[in-house]
Amino acid sequence: MSTALSHPPLLPLAGEGKVRGIFRMFRMSRAFWLILPGLLLTALVIGLPILILIWTAFHEVSRFGVLLSFNGFANFADVFADPLFYAALLRTIVWTAAVVLGTLLLSLPVALILNEDFAGRGFARLLILLPWSVSLTMTAVVWRWALNGQSGLFNHLLLQLGIIDTPIEWLGTAPLAFMVQIAIAILVSIPFTVTLLLGGLSSIAGDVYEAGAVDGATGWKSFRHITLPLLKPFVNIAIVLNVIYIFNSFPIIWVLTQGGPADGTDILVTYLYKLAFKFGQLGKASVVSLMMFAVLLVFTVVYAALQMRREET
């Protein structure tokens, strides 16, 4: 058995072993042909739209998408002059940080518990992973109805349990609505995160703990000094992937409030969607798309660099 440290990262960048047999001479071309379909598919579907967005961003665009004239950085200036853009940007940061942090703080203990040996563990895991199987759009639709102030079943439940004594209008004011949306986003992000962490936990071999126990590390100590360090790469992966998913997450806010009331729950993606498909400001929307893409790109590069450094040490 290999040591627990040898588990591969998300996309291992390591080289392969020795070159073998007669495949040496075919190796290059064969690998090329094997990856070509995937390369083509993603390059076309993801690369071309980006080129189109760049092209559009530098043009004046009619409501109906006709490119009128090259207008340099006018669309960029428009975006930077829009106070709604800054508000959405700030809210996106709060949204991403709160959801990712909340998800992690809840997922870690849940994963640790699910890693314990207890009666009905398989069933418990199934119940924890359940939200994963439901579309975000539908989850949001269900919650929108459940959170209805007068007739919603969530208020009804809280009233029954005696937690509140008057119904709460969850989506009527922006700060509260935003908190509710963050909570729902955390709820739907937990299954994926727990799964990732469980994978990490299951890779920590029992003999590591046994060795630790010999040295007197049990309970909290063993968690702090053995589990957590070994789990760290998985926690990092969970953070990175969640940041991406949450930064881009659209249906929860769109279905629940469409960024309202008074644009108080608008994040970049909802702002972007309104610009592009509600107000027909395609030039401005292209600029926002590109900026979001740039942020994601920077993030990816930083992440890849981290991965590589981790491997070298």
Binding site: G149, Q150, E169, G172, T173, A177, P261
Partner: peptide, 21 residues
């Protein structure tokens, strides 16, 4: 008015009326 009108769309507002509230 009903509390927090900003969470009431037309469908919800009309629903209040249908409930006799």
């Amino acid at each position: 008015t009903q509390p927090t009108p900003t969470s009431y769309g037309e469908a919800e507002t009309f629903a209040l009326f249908k409930q006799g509230k």
